[in-house]
Nucleic acid binder design. Sequence first.
DNA 1: TTTTATCCTATCGGTTTTATAGAGTAATCA
DNA 2: TGATTACTCTATAAAACCGATAGGATAAAA
Lengths: 137, 137
Amino acid sequence: MLSKKTKYGLKALTYLASQSKGEPVQISEIASHENISQKFLESILLTLRNTGFLGSKKGKGGGYYLLKDPGEIPMTTVIRVLEGPIAMVPCVSLNFYEKCDDCPDENKCAVHKLMLQVRDSVLEVYRNNTLADLISE
Amino acid sequence: MLSKKTKYGLKALTYLASQSKGEPVQISEIASHENISQKFLESILLTLRNTGFLGSKKGKGGGYYLLKDPGEIPMTTVIRVLEGPIAMVPCVSLNFYEKCDDCPDENKCAVHKLMLQVRDSVLEVYRNNTLADLISE
DNA sequence: TTTTATCCTATCGGTTTTATAGAGTAATCA
DNA sequence: TGATTACTCTATAAAACCGATAGGATAAAA
């Protein structure tokens, strides 16, 4: 199940992408427009800022804004930051690989075999979608 | 992330599928062979039995066995029973649909748009894999 | 120097997950 | 019949995670 953090984060990003570029948008505006708890959104935007997706400006007229063009933000990077690994088990993860405690041989493991396919399949979707692709015109 | 319940359940199913058909296999044998807590596995096998995947036999020489041919058990059905909905958000789920509280219009929602693609993509993987496909020869 | 709005940390209640304990039931075999 | 075996079921609990909130610190602008 997708976490609300990711869901809200994505909504906030698309909202920012649909605004005039570089113009700071306040948390409160995003929160009310997308029906998100403001305080919760605050922490999400903070991690998006600390991971290089957003810039921020303090004080009056401040807010958050996209640092890159929406077309240059693939979903792979967004999802990894907000949701974590794309793979459903660590033993098939590209960026967060971890061996299973059980499982003497990954190549004979049914779960491994299946989840490898799922990972590749999901990865392709995320690679084919940038933030720009998700904005409804 | 895939739950251990699903992981263990899949492993148990493939173990059963690799055994001679119809022969009951004891919980303890599966548990030790696949490095699973026996008591936990017990409850998993029970749900697989109650959902029509496994049959059981009590008493000496008893155990669990597959009710169908491994080639006739698609992953879609297994995953839905063990893990729940395949979709990552209820608003794109085929079997567990639910409208989002926020989100006035699904068709304009970025999350919806993206997760619809993910669902279709994952669904195709699950549809193309039966239990038989996961057994390593 | 006051206002505005982001930044940061801590915490908290609730839910889910993973696992264990133990009593109960049914089948087999001697 | 009686003992053994092994599944059945319920209850419980520790741990982890999630979603949300509180409150103060910091920095920019007016």
